[in-house]
């Protein structure tokens, strides 16, 4: 038993980092769902494209294993450009594949999203190849800086950075939604898209904005994961998408806080499941928890229960 407890602090750190990443991906799902009521299956690919963009930026700013400018600046550039590109991809998907279907049955929208996902994944496979891209982060952080210990628990610089950036982005998003006029319009659109349109909200613009923000966060997650786990390939979107989506539902789809909570819970669940059970069953545990939560509280942990209108 002692074997288990001594791992615990480290597993909490592992779970928290992973959970932060899941949360960032989950927010994209949840925002789109909140407004359009659709599961944007292609969000995982948007995340993957964010990872690729981050890699390219780092790659272009590196010569002979040395970065060309200040490390903090490089990381910031990676994040910003990745967010921009991913946001753009999200907007294009909305404009070309989802907007024509806004009034179509749910299942069509879902299928169209699936089509976008398959298309993007194989587009990258065709033009970037199947090879895994490695982020050479050694030049970004000096050797002595990479890890530090608290007791027997190991923290790495990148993990800390990921957690910090994740929470920063979440805080910014919260302020945007709670305090600004655009945020108010977004909340109104989420409540009732038609009523918002009648009240003078430019619904199309809000939808575009939601796709932009959601996808940009997904792109940020892609780059952060690239920095953290040092790799990206064309296939990472599927698993990440599935996990982000699970996190969003766990927390209560449509709720941004739910997505944050769900992501962190999912990350912790996985690392704790590995601790106490054979690692092969960690996803089984995650999915069983998801099913249980949905059956007991179909609206998720944080989401609001909305009685059906008759």
């Amino acid at each position: 038993m002692e074997l288990y407890w001594q791992q615990l602090p480290q597993q909490l750190v592992n779970g928290l980092t992973l959970g932060g990443v899941y949360a960032l991906i989950a927010i994209g799902y949840t925002m789109v769902y909140g407004i359009l009521g659709m599961l944007n299956f292609a969000h995982g690919e948007v995340y993957m494209i964010g990872g690729f963009t981050g890699w390219w930026v780092l790659h272009l700013l590196t010569r002979n294993n040395e970065i060309l400018m200040n490390a903090a600046l490089v990381i910031a550039l990676m994040l910003i450009i990745a967010m921009g590109v991913s946001g753009l991809v999200g907007i294009m998907a909305e404009r070309l594949a989802y907007r024509p279907l806004r009034n179509a049955p749910r299942m069509n929208l879902l299928l169209s999203a699936l089509g976008v996902s398959i298309f993007l994944q194989n587009l990258i496979l065709t033009y970037q190849g199947a090879k895994v891209r490695t982020f050479h982060i050694a030049s970004l952080i000096p050797e002595s800086f990479r890890v530090f210990h608290i007791g027997s628990t190991v923290f790495s610089f990148m993990r800390t950075l990921v957690i910090a950036v994740t929470f920063l982005l979440m805080a910014l998003l919260t302020i945007l939604i709670k305090k600004t006029k655009v945020g108010k319009a977004m909340r109104a659109t989420a409540q009732d898209i038609e009523a918002a349109a009648f009240m003078g909200v430019d619904v199309d613009r809000i939808v575009v904005l939601v796709f932009l923000i959601g996808s940009a966060l997904g792109g940020a997650a892609g780059t952060l994961v690239g920095l953290l786990f040092t790799q990206v390939d064309y296939y990472v979107g599927f698993q990440a998408g599935l996990k982000g989506f699970t996190a969003a539902v766990l927390g209560g789809i449509g709720s941004i806080y739910g997505a944050m909570l769900g992501g962190i819970l999912l990350g912790l669940t996985e690392s704790l499941a590995v601790t106490f059970l054979p690692a092969a069953y960690k996803d089984v545990v995650a999915f069983v928890i998801l099913i249980t939560v949905l059956i007991v509280r179909p609206w998720g942990l944080v989401g609001e229960r909305i009685p059906e209108k008759v």
Binding site: Q7, Q11, G15, V225, D233, Q239, V274, T275, A279
Partner: peptide, 10 residues
């Protein structure tokens, strides 16, 4: 392809 093996490595 999972990219994160820290839990099992712990």
């Amino acid at each position: 392809g999972a990219k994160d093996y820290s839990p099992v490595l712990t």
